[in-house]
Design a protein around this nucleic acid. Sequence first.
DNA 1: TGATTGTTTGATGATTCTATCATTTAAGAA
DNA 2: TTCTTAAATGATAGAATCATCAAACAATCA
Lengths: 131, 131
Amino acid sequence: MEQENQGPAFADFRAPLYEVKANLFKGLAHPVRIRVLELLSAAPEVSVSDLLSATGLEASHLSQHLSVLRRYRLVTSDRRGLQQFYTLADPLVAELLAVARGLLENVLHATKEDLETATVPRPSSTTRDTL
Amino acid sequence: MEQENQGPAFADFRAPLYEVKANLFKGLAHPVRIRVLELLSAAPEVSVSDLLSATGLEASHLSQHLSVLRRYRLVTSDRRGLQQFYTLADPLVAELLAVARGLLENVLHATKEDLETATVPRPSSTTRDTL
DNA sequence: TGATTGTTTGATGATTCTATCATTTAAGAA
DNA sequence: TTCTTAAATGATAGAATCATCAAACAATCA
């Protein structure tokens, strides 16, 4: 009784791959977690304190999402003194986010054109904002 | 009242990008939808009938997930006669799945080693199964 | 030791998602 | 028209997830 694994997470071998994969995406399916992973993508490691000030979240709220990310093995953590540092578990996590962004740009762009139905010649650069 | 958009989906411009991105992953976060997208990744287009027989799902169940995929703009559909054909909305969807698989292989492999704690020299090739 | 800062855990109600049933729309054939 | 097949929709109960709060734990310093 000393495993920190509680939920189904996805370290469940023997499960069909598409289920494991769906689980991976489930782990990514929250704005707070995306934000954290983006921050971790930009630096080799980030402390919880820094994540807190960068996101403005309540500590317990952030911690809960960090725990989810840990459970899904998307990040690893390491305590040094009073602070806890988090790192991406694999560089492919960052790549996944990058591909997602590319896809989003394509889809949003297509949708935008769709909405405007070939009316405006140029919609004032793209909708690149925050992050 | 003739828009087919009902849920929050993600064509919501003006939302911060990390939220839109989380939404994208939410759209992917179900085994049935992953399976469908994998099938669509392997062929230029697939009919609902073929998806039904390939997955063994109940028609309305599949249809509901197809509707989610449509709402999230991950697929497009096209009716020809009696049958409805589905296509990936963007090749990056397939790439996203490919990166996810790579990540999964890394993480699962690492986890496995972790579980075996450096005991067995070679765990009989990788856990590549179904799909 | 006790106080302090940093981080995690547990419990709760509210919200969202899933699977299944029954119903409905659409296209084509008889 | 009426029948059959293809697919989508609507409603619903049960499961999962989220945000919030209070409490616990860990490491350092006085």
